[in-house]
């Protein structure tokens, strides 16, 4: 596992205070598309380990973060850099599409 789990409690520390950009995957057990996206993000975490961190946040257990970022649809993938949300991608997408959308954080 090259991804980390984050919670409402450690979101500040692990995501907002991170030196590297963090890709956060907002997911839930009951969300079918989330299951398809999960292995794609695992791969991205491995391949781009030197550039980014991939973090998973379960929205059932951590309603605060999901609400703070106005999430009404999952899977939702957000990129955080320097404590700010800098990019968002909604829905399950193939790896190359995500890599294109997030290209500037993977360079």
């Amino acid at each position: 596992m090259n991804t980390i789990d984050v919670t409402d409690q450690d979101f500040q520390e692990k995501v907002l205070n991170s030196d590297k950009p963090v890709i956060v995957d907002f997911w839930a057990e009951w969300c079918g598309p989330c299951r398809m996206l999960s292995p794609i993000l695992e791969e991205m975490a491995t391949e781009h380990a030197d550039k980014i961190t991939v973090a998973k946040l379960n929205v059932d257990d951590n309603p605060q973060a999901a609400s703070n970022y106005g999430i009404t649809s999952i899977p939702a993938v957000m990129v955080f850099q320097g404590g700010e949300k800098v990019a968002t991608s909604i829905g399950a997408k193939p790896k190359q599409v995500l890599e294109t959308e997030f290209a500037e954080y993977l360079k």
Binding site: A28, W30, C31, G32, P33, V59, A66, G70, I71, T72, S73, I74, A76, T88, I90, G91
Partner: peptide, 17 residues
């Protein structure tokens, strides 16, 4: 607003409302 309130999938997104 797609993904920010507008949805085509109640089973996916109902939870957030």
């Amino acid at each position: 607003f797609s993904g920010h309130g507008v949805s085509w999938c109640a089973t996916c997104d109902g939870f957030f409302f």
